[in-house]
Simulated assay, not measured.
Amino acid sequence: MACSRKWAPWALALAMAVAGVQGPARAAGYVDVLDLPAKPSALAVLSPLRDVTRAGDRLVAVGPRGHIVYSDNQGQDWHQASVPVSADLNALVFANAREGWAVGNDGVVLHSRDGGASWARQLDGRQIGTLVEAHYQALAKAHPDDPQWPAFAAEGQRLVEEGADKPLLGVWFVDARHGYVVGVFNLILRTDDGGNSWVPMQDRTDNPQGLHLNAIHAIGDELYVAGEQGLLLKWQAGQQRFVSLPSPYQGTWFGVLGKPGEVLAYGLRGHVARSSDGGQSWARVNTGVTQSITAASIDSNGDYWLFSQAGQVLRSRDGGLSFAVQPQVPPAPVTAAVQARSNGTVLVGERGVRVLPAR
């Protein structure tokens, strides 16, 4: 099952508030969460989790305080991974059964080479500002008559001055070498060597307001970004940039998913839109709910599933043209979902992990 998840508004506000508390004024003896390994906890699987995905036959989920858990029996039993940070983690992706990446608050990027059992830090917010500033200063020096480069360099300097307080919200890898991370205020970086080095791409997005980028997801060969205030972007290889798509809704989109030939965007207040032409035009889909759609997935039959902030479960059997609320599903908030090999669906959220039997 393909899966996608969203960044809840309350969670983003909390992340930014916590980042402010952890700013320049730090108490004596304070250890930065970027230098503090995640503590082992028997309750990790019952604590809030924000994303879940598959690494081959293994399931891997991430959440606050650096918690990463994995299961080798389709969600029945879970083990806690070895993680070098205690920063809250927001999203993850695996390029294959072994290599995966997770991102989170404080600009952290983690990498696993063993299917999610252990992780190493590749990048964090203490490095991102310097990286952005140096990249755009070099472009400003090479192109002194172009006013955009000093502006981007100034943004990098601001990141340096404010410290590691900018959450990364989404991650996508095309394969084990080529990938992207996205976050608040148009923060976006690309790697072509598996995360050993990163290149800022703020100048490659049609996002002049610097809106938050909530998620990045590929559908076939097409790569999409979902953001706030109706922002939808799509990578155009010919232009080498993420171009803006027309949006039928000016509120926040939390994610996109789909199959070749059809794309769904989902977001606040039950809003869902469907495109059958690669995002060039969209039709609103009546979900029948007013709560925010917080996660979505596609099962092995090709049916779409949506999950609301109130715990409602919706299913579409007609390619996303219509949805019906599923009866007799115990409500609980869901932040991400993925199909287990047993055909059940593994859900994660504020109450940890639960398994929804196949229906």
Rank of each mutant, 00 (worst) to 15 (best):
G116I: 01
L268I: 13
V225Y: 13
G319T: 00
I298Y: 07
R121N: 04
Q148W: 11
L12V: 12
A295T: 02
V346G: 00
Q127M: 12
Q137E: 12
A324G: 01
H67W: 08
A340G: 15
S316Y: 09
T287M: 01
A15S: 14
N186L: 04
P333I: 07
A27C: 03
V348S: 05
S4C: 12
S244W: 10
G129V: 05
A337D: 13
K259Q: 15
R54S: 13
I298S: 05
A2M: 04
R158Y: 08
Q328S: 08
S4G: 15
A358G: 06
C3G: 14
P200T: 12
T287W: 00
G344W: 12
A153M: 07
V132C: 04
V85T: 10
H271Y: 00
V171M: 00
Q127E: 14
G349Y: 13
R190G: 00
K234D: 09
A102D: 05
A2Y: 09
N196Y: 09
E222V: 11
D32K: 08
H271C: 00
V174D: 04
A19D: 11
L59Y: 03
H143C: 01
S244M: 13
F254Q: 02
G170Q: 07
L213F: 13
Q80I: 14
R269V: 06
V174R: 09
Y224K: 06
G163R: 07
R351W: 03
P327K: 04
I219G: 14
T345E: 11
V329L: 14
A218C: 11
W101E: 01
P331H: 06
G258K: 08
I188T: 11
V243L: 06
T205F: 10
Q202S: 14
L189D: 05
Y266H: 02
C3V: 06
P147I: 14
L43G: 02
V346L: 15
R121Q: 14
A102K: 02
R65K: 14
G349R: 08
A332I: 03
P330N: 09
G170C: 07
V181T: 08
Q137I: 05
A38H: 05
L257D: 13
I216M: 07
V181F: 07
P144Q: 06
L131C: 03
W172L: 01
D175W: 01
G227P: 03
S247N: 05
R50G: 00
